[in-house]
Amino acid sequence: MAAGVPIKAPVAGIAMGLVKKDDHYTILTDIQGLEDHFGDMDFKVSGTRNGICSLQMDIKIAGITRDILKEAMSQANKARNEILDSMERTLDKPRKELSKYAPKVKMMMVNVDKIREIIGSGGKTISSIIEQCNDVKIDIEQNGRVTIMHQDIFFIEKAQKMIENIIREVEVGEVYQGKVVRIEKFGAFVELWPGQDGLVHIRNLAKEHIGKVEDVVKMGDIITVKVIGVDDKGRVDLSRKAVLDSLGK
């Protein structure tokens, strides 16, 4: 609980003993030292307030009836609750936060077809993510489960973002804010997110006819664009005009 592991409930354990002489018997709570091996039965029970989690019992004599066992178990139950009371005075539930030195973990599911892209040729893409995110640990399982681990949640989230960007797919009709990253005679390349560019052809830059791309946008501008098509090579066609049209400007 101190480590912030979200366990269902605190668990306590107790060692019990039993000494039997003829028909008389005595059940002992919390046996120690001398009582260790002198008894006729010893058992250890652990559990939560709700019930038993583990039990170990050694009985050296015959004649331990169900009633005796029942009594012993109920005496153990009482002791277990007393120990839980004592523990809860120190800490009564798991902490919300993990230690700042503990590895934090985030899990995400990705489409199995995308695993290759995340890894990249010869592991290039994933190595680059790991490098940029302070040696974050990334496990990718065959079923598409990606586990990202690092002591610092900041780097986990950064890596998560980078992976999300790789697996994100452009959808036709979607509107994005993007940055102009390259200007050519025939149009402007706009970065929708890191790793994903699209082209706004000069004829789709504005409602009116323009002579030069630079008349409307310059490098670094943030503009709103709509995806109007993706060709079979994955090249994205964008339009600024379409956005302006829908805004009725």
Partner: peptide, 12 residues
């Protein structure tokens, strides 16, 4: 008589 018990349990 039973002389050894070893158990794990889901809070029973």
């Amino acid at each position: 008589a039973v002389n050894m018990v070893e158990a794990g349990a889901k809070e029973v």
